[in-house]
């Protein structure tokens, strides 16, 4: 998708969004609530018609070629609403058949692994169980692309790990996955690349390593002589001293320079910690918050 705009009245849900998912990868799609993740997926499903911009999925146009494309994709919404008087098993079969076919062996295996009772009427399912129905329906047919909108929001940790192994297997079979999620550990485990969206724009994309390089590393260093002029170095932030050690954060690009400077004072010990995904995420999420909190301050 490139430069896609979608407005609802005066809100710009997508404001020039660029998103690229490569064939065969598991792509993480992160963003705060209301940032436009679900709208993106609904545009890709051809349910919403973008105002402008270009989108292409599996070589087709999501709006015009919807039906042909839909044979090759499966979708799991974040908020799963099912037909209350149909059983879970019926819904799984129906959705898979509407898509073009179900693999009964795979279906039964998934039902087993996710510990779903397919005989229950869906009105009696909990949120997590409704989610399982949608997951089994999506995973039980051999599609090329899985569009998953916060698929594990209602699952317990055990089921989440089952879900993760299912996705890794799907990826190993060469399927492409777009995974919108809030659960950073999940994204970290599953995703090859990720895109962070905010206010309907992609603010960052790349592999996890690339994103880390773009952000700061935390350094804690103890030296023989006090470090001088540290605050005058480029890319060094948030300097503080405790227990004789100096701690600071340094931008990925300036890491080399900062380390050269520090070593000239005789390093006794040095601990460096790469940014966690949380930090990455939070930096893009709330710059408003960040300016209020000196400990995370950015110049």
């Amino acid at each position: 998708m490139s430069d896609v705009v979608k407005t609802f009245g005066s809100t710009r849900a997508l404001d020039g969004l660029d998103l690229e998912v490569e064939t065969g990868e598991v792509h993480g799609y992160l963003g705060p609530n209301g940032s436009g993740k679900t709208v993106t997926i609904r545009v890709l499903l051809g349910l919403l018609r973008p105002d402008s911009g270009r989108s292409e999925m599996l070589g087709g146009d999501p709006w015009h070629d919807a039906v042909d494309l839909h044979r090759r994709i499966a979708y799991v919404p974040g908020d799963v609403n099912l037909w209350p008087n149909l059983s879970g098993g019926e819904i799984i079969d129906l959705l898979a058949r509407l898509r073009g076919g179900v693999d009964p062996r795979l279906r039964d295996e998934l039902v087993e692994r996710l510990q779903l009772d397919p005989r229950k009427k869906s009105s009696t399912y909990s949120k997590g169980n409704r989610q399982k129905v949608a997951l089994v329906a999506a995973l039980a047919s051999h599609v090329e692309l899985l569009l998953l909108d916060e698929p594990t929001a209602g699952l317990d940790p055990l089921m989440e790990s089952v879900f993760q192994s299912c996705i890794l297997e799907a990826a190993a079979e060469g399927r492409t996955v777009l995974l919108s999620s809030h659960i950073l550990a999940e994204v970290e485990t599953l995703c090859d690349r990720l895109t962070i969206i905010r206010h309907g724009r992609a603010v960052q994309h790349g592999t996890l390593a690339e994103l880390r390089a773009l952000t700061r590393t935390s350094i804690a260093v103890a030296t023989n002589r006090p470090i001088e002029r540290l605050d005058s170095l480029a890319g060094v932030h948030n300097i503080r001293t405790d227990d004789g050690a100096v701690r600071f954060d340094v931008d990925g690009a300036d890491l080399d320079g900062a380390l050269r400077h520090v070593t000239s004072f005789g390093v006794r010990s040095l601990v460096s910690r790469p940014p966690t995904l949380e930090e990455l995420f939070l930096r893009h999420y709330d710059d408003d918050l960040a300016t209020d909190q000196p400990s995370n301050s950015t110049p």
Binding site: L47, A66, H70, Y75, L95, L98, G100, L147
Partner: peptide
């Protein structure tokens, strides 16, 4: 959504 996300 479910139905329209299939080949319908």
């Amino acid at each position: 959504d479910f139905v329209l996300a299939t080949a319908t």
